[in-house]
Computed example of a mutant assay.
Amino acid sequence: MPGQRQRAGGAGEELEPVVADAVARAGFELEELQVHQAGRKQLVKVIVDGDDGIGLDQVAEVARAVSEALDTREEVLAGAYTLEVTSPGLDRPLTKPRHWRRARLRKVAVRQADAKFLARVGAAADDSVELLVDGQLRRVAYPEIEHAVIEVEFKEPPAAEIAQLTHEEEGSR
């Protein structure tokens, strides 16, 4: 499955290891780095995530760490910059096994070559994910998934679905 991290040319390529290291030291993962010219300044957009998501206080912590790291590499940006640190939105496609692990027990919309369906996410392995579709558990290999995103739910998920997914995981241990 294609990765989410986008590499910008020039400054972005040189900054990526610096930014990724600062983000990792703060305990998170760099999902995407974008560097664009915005008037007289560079706009540096850093999208980060963690195993349990990321809150506003943690975004501020990552922003401080990245800002310090960028300030040590002033020669790469060659001037003023605006830093934007954010988390991926709910509309971010699930493209990596870690995205699927973070979506455990969430409802997702899945598109395959020949089908579209809603499912609830179970155990995610390195090569596939278990999905609960219409009451039936299915193991789906990532390459079979063309597109998948989390569906927003405004009420608690049905207890029976959660029990079915967590019972399967406990039984496989």
Rank of each mutant, 00 (worst) to 15 (best):
Q6Y: 08
R7V: 14
A8Y: 00
G10D: 13
G10A: 15
G12R: 12
G12A: 10
E13K: 10
E14H: 06
E16K: 02
E16Y: 04
P17N: 04
V18W: 08
V19A: 10
A20S: 09
A20D: 12
D21C: 06
A22G: 02
A24Y: 03
R25T: 04
A26Q: 11
A26N: 02
G27C: 08
G27T: 03
F28D: 00
E29S: 04
L30S: 02
E31T: 08
E31I: 14
E32R: 10
L33D: 02
L33E: 06
L33S: 05
Q34L: 14
Q34D: 09
Q34W: 04
V35S: 04
V35Q: 06
H36R: 15
H36F: 11
H36C: 00
Q37I: 12
A38T: 02
G39T: 01
G39Y: 02
G39A: 07
R40N: 06
R40E: 08
K41W: 10
L43P: 00
K45D: 02
I47L: 14
I47Q: 01
I47F: 01
V48I: 14
V48R: 02
V48Q: 04
D49W: 03
D49I: 07
G50I: 13
G50C: 01
D51Q: 14
D52T: 06
G53S: 06
I54N: 02
I54R: 03
L56Q: 00
D57S: 04
Q58W: 08
Q58L: 10
V59M: 12
V59S: 09
E61H: 09
V62G: 01
A63H: 02
A65E: 08
A65Y: 11
E68G: 06
E68Y: 05
A69S: 09
A69C: 11
A69I: 13
A69N: 05
L70T: 03
D71P: 01
T72Y: 02
T72K: 15
R73M: 03
R73Q: 15
R73I: 06
E74V: 11
E74L: 14
E75I: 07
V76A: 01
V76K: 01
G79S: 10
G79L: 12
A80L: 14
T82V: 15
T82K: 10
L83P: 03
E84Q: 11
V85E: 05
T86C: 11
G89C: 07
G89I: 08
L90V: 15
D91T: 12
R92Q: 07
P93K: 07
L94E: 05
K96S: 14
R98N: 03
R98L: 12
W100I: 09
W100Q: 04
R101S: 07
R101H: 04
R101V: 10
R102C: 02
A103T: 05
A103N: 01
R106F: 00
V108A: 00
A109Q: 12
A109Y: 03
A109W: 11
Q112I: 00
Q112K: 09
Q112W: 01
A113S: 10
A113P: 00
A115K: 03
K116P: 00
L118E: 14
L118M: 11
A119N: 02
A119G: 03
R120F: 09
G122L: 09
A123Y: 07
A125I: 01
A125L: 09
D126R: 11
D126S: 13
D127K: 10
S128H: 15
S128E: 05
S128A: 15
V129R: 00
E130Q: 08
E130S: 08
E130L: 12
L131T: 06
V133K: 09
V133L: 12
D134L: 05
D134N: 12
